[in-house]
């Protein structure tokens, strides 16, 4: 991947993280500072063990650390993802306070310093009214481009309890970004824990399939016809067979969900996008071309996912794309999807 190819690209998912809680303490009020200082709460992320090759290292925790990475690739825009809320325990008020602090930190440390940067508004799914308030607080800032949620939640994302958040998202044109991982202990097993990291790492794809179906089946796109959803770091090569399955089943059981008025795959193609990492693809370029055709390159949006390392799948994906499709994947689709938010 040459720097030239990525120049003018839109990087939809580039990670930053505070190096410690101390980094975000200044953005919290006195009560929450004392809450933290008097405890063992921390900010480690359960999904990215530091020694795992796929983790790649710690994300930049300051603009000085980010700048060389950014300048090497020189994208047109990069949307920052801070997953600090994944490590937050279940006190919903603490979670909401941390969300505010994290978003303020991202803005002050990164967004105001570099025109190229945007970020997701991190919110906790523990308290949706608080999440709505946080979105409204930042909606007119001009530097936020999506609403960031973990793909692993306690209740599938189509559920009506989330609908007020989708309403405010639609109102301001913010896509909902469902990013891989979430709180620890949310793997798809009875206990939520897997015996190997291998399993957990591979399971974001299963969770994404469940969330995709929930959003459609619960009529989210009937209620919110302008809502957009992007799956980040969940892969995409699992999509075609799951859409065939979903469409076929809908034909027989549509009466259970008559608000799903079109084929599920029509909703998915219209409302959802998927980032290019991890590009979990076959080795054979001929088969890669088949997969690209089945998925539809128009659903894909480039993400460096820096610093995570998922192998050479993305390079092989790019090699299989026509110039026109490569341009869409690297820039055009995201430009249309985010519109003014990244203009």
């Amino acid at each position: 991947m040459t720097a030239m190819t990525l120049t003018a690209a839109v990087d939809c998912d580039l990670h930053v993280a505070p190096s410690s809680l101390g980094t975000v303490l200044p953005y919290l009020d006195e009560y929450w500072r004392s809450y933290i200082e008097d405890s063992t709460v921390g900010l480690s992320h359960p999904g990215y063990p530091l020694g795992a090759a796929t983790t790649g290292g710690t994300p930049p925790s300051s603009y000085d650390e980010l700048a060389p990475v950014l300048n090497a690739a020189n994208p047109h825009r990069a949307i920052l993802t801070c997953l600090a809320l994944d490590g937050v325990h279940r006190n919903p008020y603490y979670a909401a306070a941390m969300a505010r602090a994290v978003n303020d930190w991202v803005r002050e440390e990164f967004l105001v310093r570099d025109e190229r940067l945007r970020a997701g508004i991190a919110v906790s799914p523990l308290d949706i009214p608080a999440a709505v308030q946080e979105v409204e607080r930042l909606a007119d800032d001009g530097r936020f481009a999506q609403i960031l949620l973990p793909v692993r939640g306690d209740v599938p994302y189509g559920n009506r309890l989330y609908h007020p958040l989708y309403a405010v998202a639609q109102e301001h044109g913010f896509p909902i970004a469902l990013h891989a991982w979430g709180r620890g202990g949310k793997a798809p097993s009875m206990t939520g824990v897997t015996a190997t990291y291998l399993e957990d790492y591979s399971s974001n794809a299963q969770i994404a399939q469940v969330q995709m179906m929930s959003l459609v089946a619960e009529g989210v796109f009937t209620r919110f016809p302008q809502l957009k959803v992007v799956f980040m770091e969940c892969g995409f090569s699992w999509l075609p067979p799951q859409l065939w399955r979903f469409d076929k089943d809908w034909k027989g059981v549509w009466r259970e969900v008559p608000w799903v008025k079109e084929r599920p795959s029509d909703y998915v193609r219209r409302h959802m996008r998927f980032t290019t990492e991890p590009a979990q693809l076959p080795q054979d370029p001929h088969q890669i071309a088949q997969v690209v055709e089945m998925v539809g390159p128009e659903l894909l949006m480039y993400a460096s996912d820096y610093p995570h390392q998922h192998g050479d799948g993305f390079e092989r994906l790019l090699a299989a794309l026509s110039d026109e499709d490569a341009e869409s994947v690297l820039r055009g689709t995201a430009a249309a999807f985010y519109g003014d938010l990244i203009a």
């Binding site: 009506r160 619960e218 009529g219 009937t222 209620r223 034909k251 027989g252 059981v253 009466r255 969900v257 008559p258 608000w259 008025k261």
Partner: peptide
């Protein structure tokens, strides 16, 4: 059966839609 809002369904008109007993 017609629905504009999840959870709210109106049924009506002639019962002339037959569902295959296999896949529906």
């Amino acid at each position: 059966a017609e629905s504009e809002i999840p959870g709210e369904v109106e049924v009506g008109g002639s019962a002339r839609f037959v569902a295959c007993p296999w896949h529906g």
